[in-house]
Design a protein around this nucleic acid. Structure first.
Length: 516
RNA sequence: GGGGGCGUAGCUCAGUUGGUCAGAGCGCCGGACUCAUAAUCUGGUGGCCGCUGGUUCGAGUCCAGCCGCCCCCA
């Protein structure tokens, strides 16, 4: 791959049901990171999609009186429409039932088989359909799966196994030598501790049902859904079909996952890649879980809340901002209607939206809506220099936070500049300058600096709140889409043309009444 | 059973290798200002840093035990 590419994946979501807040949380964070990387000038490839095979989907479909294909075909749009509503900028969307996936997956496992990495054996065990996984006695509570509360089925079947056990040592070396392979650090320790205890070989096929991808050398077996699913990360970018494209994008920079599926991504997936001598992803980042608190939705479970329920009130931008800013990314976080409302009003309406509103209004009132000439170096006072410093600091902190995969810190860093800009307004008090004709140039400089601050903020916040950023960009008389710009090209001061007419308008983020 | 994590102001959380580490934002109280979405700026209130021992000249910061909460286990 080339250095300027940036390939990020979300999990492909299991289409057993419709999307909920947890899925959207991962996807929004991923989108923020990808949009930010694009504006850093990286050549981004952002992949998401759906995981459609396996017994659970089959049973869900049967329960609805549909074929699994009918079921997945009608539910996938429920996912894509949510991503559209949240302005997710994915470059591709892969379904594991697509031809471009199934063929290469067969080639992948065939190659493993040819290399002796897969062998036939018999598996006897307790299988939990909910988990799509075998269980050992120890894991059961009163004979039932603790996650699903159901009794596992006793299954004895001929399976093919992947020689996962051969890779424990190499995996341990990997975790120890590369601190970025599993992030955050606490998760790395978790995986390391577990793998040090050794690994068993992994059953990778099923014969009891046929909703899956057949093993090419033994077609009565279908490939275990997880093995099939993980490969979306390479099949989507041309593994076995388009070597040039594959080489350009692989390895992935980040696999973003929830902590519940870390094992598959940090152990099984790299082991399979090792078995084929393919490069390993650079980082598997596991974020925390959301929990639902507060009064308004206390009776709901996270999985019972649709993103649409919140987008209606807070908008796509409000939704995105809240989940990016509120939750410490590597840790579990709480969602509540109340905290979402607080964040929206405090950060978006008061700090950001009002800043735009007051600046545009003053330019309109004191300068007839037209931007003055940008200040010369010699015209800058300490107040302007501080503002310029604040922006530089804010942007560099954002970049550092994104490097560490900490979107909430990046959002916080951006708001440092918002606050500084508001403080600058107070410091220079344009309304006072406007009363004294002798201060005309000082007034122009102050309002130019503020308009320019808004432009820089539109750039910085576009990855988080793309709609408001675009609207601000437009009101400042700027052409095109802000998301197509880069920090390097547009991140300097003084890029607004003298004489440009700016527009005032409706509040970017109208305050929301807590009572309603 | 094994492995990992969390418990710091009312709330959400920061606190590298132990010594200005007792912080930020929100909330709350007061002051300033009036360009603005009763927004903004500014000052302040507020915490036996879960409990108990230990190591140390000195511990949210290390060790042990305990209490509470949580996650993972192919």
């Amino acid at each position: 791959m080339s250095d300027d590419t940036f390939y990020l994946t979300t999990p492909i979501y299991y289409v057993n049901d419709v999307p909920h807040l947890g899925h959207a949380y991962t996807t929004v964070a991923a989108d923020f990171i990808c949009r930010f990387r694009r504006m850093q000038g990286r050549k981004v490839h952002f992949l998401t999609g759906t995981d459609e095979h396996g017994q659970k989907v089959l049973r869900t479909a049967e329960a609805k009186g549909m074929s699994p294909r009918q079921w997945t075909d009608q539910i996938v749009p429920r996912w894509t429409e949510v991503w559209k509503a949240l302005d997710i900028s994915n470059d591709d969307f892969i379904r594991t039932t697509e031809q471009r996936h199934e063929g290469p997956v067969q080639e992948f496992v065939q190659t493993l088989y040819d290399r002796g990495e897969i062998y036939a054996g018999v598996y006897k065990g307790l299988y939990c359909v909910g988990c799509e996984a075998f269980k050992v006695e120890d894991e059961l509570v009163d004979g039932k799966c603790p996650l699903h509360g159901t009794e596992p089925e006793i299954v004895e079947e001929e399976n093919y196994f992947f020689r996962l056990s051969n890779y424990a040592d190499r995996l341990v070396d990997l975790y120890e030598s590369d601190e970025r392979f599993v992030m955050p650090e606490s998760r790395r320790n978790e995986v390391l501790g577990k793998v040090r205890q050794g690994l068993d070989d992994l059953s990778i096929s099923r014969v009891s049902f046929d909703w899956g991808i057949p093993l090419p050398w033994d077609e009565k077996h279908v490939i275990y859904v997880w093995i099939d699913a993980l490969q979306n990360y390479i099949t989507a970018i041309g593994y076995a079909t388009d070597p040039e494209r594959f080489d350009e994008l692989w390895p992935a920079d980040i696999h973003l996952v929830g902590k519940d599926i870390l094992w598959f991504h940090s152990v099984i997936w790299p082991a399979m890649l090792m078995a084929l001598d393919l490069p390993l992803p650079k980082t598997v980042f596991a974020h925390g879980y959301l929990q639902v608190g507060g009064e308004k939705m206390s009776k709901s479970k996270l999985t019972g809340i649709s993103p649409h329920d919140l987008i209606g009130t807070f908008g796509s931008d409000g939704y995105r901002y809240y989940f990016i800013r509120e939750v410490s990314f590597g840790q579990d976080g709480n969602f509540s209607w109340e905290s979402m409302l607080d964040r929206y009003n405090a950060d978006l309406a008061n700090d950001f939206g009002n800043l735009a509103s007051r600046v545009l209004s003053m330019i309109n009132r004191y300068l007839e809506g037209r931007l003055p000439a940008p200040p010369q170096e010699a015209e800058l006072t300490q107040a302007e220099r501080d503002l310029i410093d604040a922006h530089a600091k804010s942007l560099s902190h954002m970049e550092a936070a994104i490097d560490k995969v900490l979107p909430h810190q990046a959002a916080k860093a951006a708001w440092f500049f918002v606050r500084k800009a508001n403080a600058y307004v107070e410091e220079v008090a344009p309304w006072a300058l406007a009363k004294e004709p002798a201060q005309r140039r000082r007034l122009e400089i102050a309002l130019y600096m503020l308009a320019d601050s808004l432009r820089l903020l539109a750039l910085m916040t576009s990855p988080m709140i793309p709609r408001a950023a675009q609207e601000l960009w437009r009101r400042l008389g700027l052409e095109g889409r802000v998301e197509d710009r880069t920090f390097v090209d547009e991140g300097g001061w003084g890029r607004l043309g003298a004489g440009t007419t700016v527009e005032t308008g409706e509040a970017l983020f109208p305050r929301l009444d807590p009572a309603s």
